[in-house]
Amino acid sequence: MWLRQANDALRFPVFPSSFEINSKAIVNTSNVLKLGEIAVFGGVGLRTTEISSFFPKNEASYCDYTGFPTPYDCVNKIQKWMNEGLILRYTITETNINMEVIVDSFKYEEKDCTGDVYFTLSLKEYKRIQIPKVNTNNDKISSKLDLPLTKGFEVKNKQKTHRVGKGDSLWSLAKKYYGNGDLWKRIYDANKKLIKNPDIIQDGWVLTIP
C-alpha cells in the first residue's frame, strides 16, 4: 500500500487488516406532473476509503519491509500533505486500486507505551475537471484544458513524442515527462497500436507522450 506525491512516497510498513473502497451513484429525484417522482442519474460520486493501522517503532515479523521511516516521520509526512492540500497517488499492488486522492482527515495516537503510532487516515478521490479555453480571436470555445484544482501531479496539455532508447520503460518515461512513474498507463493507452506488452518497449520506437 503506497501514497505518492511527485517524487515523495510513503509505503505503509504494516498492511491494515482490511480495506474497502466506498463508491456510489448520484441519483436525483424530481416530481413530474402526472408521472409522479422520477429518478435521474447524475453521475458517479467520489470514491472514499478509510485506512486504520499503525506505524511501528521497531522491525517485526508483521512488517511488510525493513528500513521503514520512524512513526513520527510517517505522521509528519501525511500531516504535511494534508495541510498543503496536495494531490496524492494511492495504490495497492495486486489490486485495481490506483487513483488520485487528497487527505480528508488524519488522526493518530500512542496507546500501549511501545512507541508505535496508531492512526486512521481518510482519503477522498480527486477528479480533474475540464475548463473551456476561449479563443480570443472569435470569442468561441476552441479547446479544453485539463487543470487540477489543487497542487500535485500537474499535467501538461502539450503532446510530445519520444524515441525509445536503451533502458527506457513506460515507468521511466512517465517519471521523465510527468514527474510520476505511476502515470505510465497514459503513455501505454496512447500507443496501444504499437505496444502489445506494457513491460516491453523496443529501441527506436517513436511513442506519443500525451
Rank of each mutant, 00 (worst) to 15 (best):
L3I: 11
L3H: 04
Q5W: 02
A6N: 14
N7L: 12
L10A: 08
F15L: 13
F15S: 13
F15Y: 13
P16D: 07
S17G: 15
S17Y: 04
S18M: 05
E20V: 06
S23R: 12
V27D: 13
T29P: 07
K34L: 14
K34A: 12
L35C: 03
G36M: 02
E37Q: 14
E37H: 03
I38M: 06
A39N: 14
A39Y: 03
A39T: 08
V40W: 00
V40H: 01
V44A: 11
V44H: 03
V44F: 05
L46E: 10
R47V: 00
T48E: 15
T49A: 08
E50P: 00
S52Y: 00
F54L: 12
F54C: 04
F54M: 08
P56A: 03
K57I: 09
A60Q: 12
C63N: 15
D64A: 15
Y65C: 10
P69I: 04
T70S: 15
P71F: 07
P71I: 11
V75W: 01
K77F: 00
I78L: 15
I78F: 02
Q79W: 00
Q79L: 13
M82H: 02
M82K: 14
T93V: 09
E94R: 11
T95E: 12
N96T: 14
N96L: 07
I97E: 14
V101A: 01
I102V: 15
I102L: 08
D104G: 06
F106P: 03
F106Q: 04
K107H: 07
Y108L: 07
K111A: 07
D112Y: 05
D112K: 07
G115D: 10
G115A: 10
D116R: 10
V117W: 01
F119S: 10
T120A: 05
L121D: 06
S122R: 11
L123D: 05
L123M: 05
K124N: 09
K127C: 02
R128K: 11
R128W: 04
I129T: 10
I131E: 15
P132R: 07
V134Q: 09
N135W: 00
N135H: 05
T136K: 13
T136G: 06
T136A: 14
N138K: 00
K140Q: 15
S142G: 13
S143A: 14
S143Y: 07
K144V: 12
L145R: 12
P148C: 08
G152L: 01
G152A: 04
K156Y: 12
V164Q: 09
V164T: 04
V164W: 01
G165N: 09
K166F: 02
D168Y: 01
S169E: 06
S172A: 12
S172P: 09
S172G: 06
K176Y: 11
Y177C: 03
N180M: 10
N180Y: 08
N180F: 02
G181E: 15
W184M: 11
Y188A: 05
Y188G: 06
A190P: 14
A190H: 10
K193P: 02
L194E: 11
L194F: 00
I195V: 09
I195P: 08
K196E: 13
D199L: 08
D203W: 00
D203V: 15
G204T: 12
T208I: 15
T208M: 05
